[in-house]
């Protein structure tokens, strides 16, 4: 159960909520039939035009929660209870066809390692225009023009050159921008970033974070930012959801969580991060 019901309830009643997960529980069934709980009454909401951080250690259920939003869990996953409301619609009740319409056009996800998330045999241009052609009735030429625009939006220096490049020709930071461009091409309403800066150089990391913040400030992009790095959270996010062992430990605004964490686990996380000074 959420350890912080007052705040969750307060956010849920607001009209500005884009995504609301309530009492979401489930787990995986092994081949021998043993059931393991991985999510236990997960509840939090993401307000429109904010960057919400989903923080927790490895195995805390962050990614499973994110994949649940997109309905992309392995068949061994079984849901016990809960709902995931996106703009008032329960995503868990949609059929495959309806979910596919949501994926890639309304909700998009960016992975940690961009170079493995991009298809090695196609150029960046082909991959980005493919996505827009999948969701919109546009000609090849229009799709390619849109792709150049979106590459420009994520500040790739020479978008036309990048269009012709293959993923292995790009640096880690450039590949992450290209992946971000692929996510943004259909102008989604929710962007899920799964550890998007882990594994990048610190300077590149800062560039990408700046880009994400700018997308939020300038275009009102609602973002769910999955990370284990509280340093990043302090710099970029508006709200924070702390998870441990498949449960939400604490939710609140960024300032509140960093400066006066109420939950013991949150205090531990902050103490362990390089922003120790902030909490004291």
């Amino acid at each position: 159960m959420s350890s912080d019901p007052p705040l969750a309830a307060e956010q849920a009643t607001s009209t500005d909520v884009l995504l609301e997960i309530a009492d979401y529980s489930g787990g995986f069934t092994s081949q021998t039939g043993v059931f393991t709980h991985v999510l236990n009454g997960v509840a939090f909401s993401v307000a429109r035009s904010t960057i919400t951080a989903l923080v927790g250690e490895t195995g805390s259920g962050k990614t499973v929660t994110a994949l649940s939003i997109l309905g992309l869990l392995p068949r061994t996953f079984r849901r016990i209870s809960g709902s995931i409301l996106f703009e008032g619609r329960d995503l868990l009740k949609l059929d495959d066809e309806e979910l596919r319409a949501v994926r890639g056009s309304q909700i998009c996800m960016v992975f940690q390692d961009a170079r493995t998330a991009l298809n090695p045999v196609f150029t960046i241009g082909t991959q980005i225009s493919d996505v827009s052609r999948l969701h919109q009735r546009v000609s090849k030429k229009q799709a390619r023009n849109t792709a150049v625009e979106v590459l420009d939006r994520v500040r790739i220096p020479d978008p036309r050159r990048c269009m012709r490049q293959y993923p292995h020709e790009l640096s880690g930071g450039m590949a992450q921008r290209a992946q971000l461009a692929m996510a943004l091409v259909c102008r989604p309403r929710l962007l899920i970033l799964d550890e998007p800066t882990t594994g990048l150089d610190v300077t590149i990391q800062a560039d990408i974070l700046e880009l994400i913040v700018d997308l939020n400030r300038n275009e009102g992009m609602t973002t769910l930012f999955i990370t284990h790095d509280l340093g990043i959270v302090a710099e970029t996010c508006d709200a924070v959801v702390v998870m441990q062992y498949g449960e939400v430990r604490e939710t609140g605004t960024c300032e509140q969580i960093i400066t006066s964490p109420r939950n013991a686990y949150t205090q531990m996380l902050i103490a362990a991060s390089r922003f120790q000074g902030v909490s004291e």
Partner: peptide
Amino acid sequence: TWQFAEAARLTGRRPIGVLFRHLVPN
């Protein structure tokens, strides 16, 4: 199970599309 296959599904492709557009060329 490679990530680009999962990423392709996340862009809203049906499984058969992931197979023939992304996996077979690879």
